[in-house]
Design a binder for these strands. Structure first.
Length: 200
DNA sequence: GAGTTTGAAACT
DNA sequence: CAGTTTCAAACTC
């Protein structure tokens, strides 16, 4: 065994406890094992994914890696930003059929990333296009629209005051204010359209 | 908390 | 390689 594979078999810092009952935590079903972590503070039965069973554990890792060299590289790494930038090379892609990739059964959704062309899912709604439409973007749009409306109302009230106080003494000035009102309206509705089309 | 659903992993 | 079974997590009631 070379140094590189040895270091890859070393357990990393555990991030999640498992509840395995039948796999002895020596199959990829086990989240700890699939991350090459030892089980610690888990609620598993007959656990063999602990230092006491290191020989068996390493043997299992070896046989699984032999069958599929990328078996231990599919799960979400701890540095999620790195994963997002390099997701195609790190994940095999999901095969979701029923959940539209919008439930945590989906590995991609669970990892907080959009499905890609490497996935083989059906009726997928976990796409980058949908990310723009999700609930997170609506409050942002609402804030933008709110600011446009405030600006519009302020501008309009200024013009109304000008008319009300009869400050426009010539027809040229009246025409100018009417045109300004129209420009503000046009600008306001144009901004709304741009906002909803995500072009601001 | 028990039962069901789901999709990955393992097996044949 | 395709179909089936096993498994653990997510979900529902």
């Amino acid at each position: 065994m070379n140094n590189e594979s040895q270091s890859n078999d070393l357990p990393t810092t555990q991030t999640k406890a498992c509840n395995c009952k039948y796999s002895k935590c020596l199959k990829l079903y086990c989240q700890c094992f699939s991350s090459k972590d030892y089980c610690k503070n888990c609620d598993c039965n007959n656990c063999h994914n602990i230092p006491e069973y290191e020989a068996i554990r390493k043997s299992k890792i070896k046989s699984i890696t032999k069958r599929d060299s990328s078996a231990f590289r599919r799960k979400m790494p701890k540095d999620q930003r790195k994963f997002k930038n390099n997701q195609k090379s790190l994940i095999k892609g999901c095969n979701c059929k029923r959940t539209k990739c919008i439930q945590k059964y989906c590995e991609c959704y669970n990892a907080g990333i959009a499905c890609t062309e490497t996935c083989n899912c059906l009726k997928c709604k976990n796409t980058t296009l949908d990310e723009k439409k999700d609930c997170i973007s609506y409050p942002q749009n609402n804030e933008i629209l709110k600011s446009y409306t405030e600006y519009f109302n302020q501008s309009f009230s200024i013009i109304q005051n000008v008319f009300a106080e009869e400050k426009c003494e010539s027809s040229t000035e009246i025409n100018h204010e009417v045109k300004a009102t129209g420009n503000i309206e046009e600008s306001y509705f144009a901004k709304i359209l741009l906002t909803f089309n995500g072009l601001t």
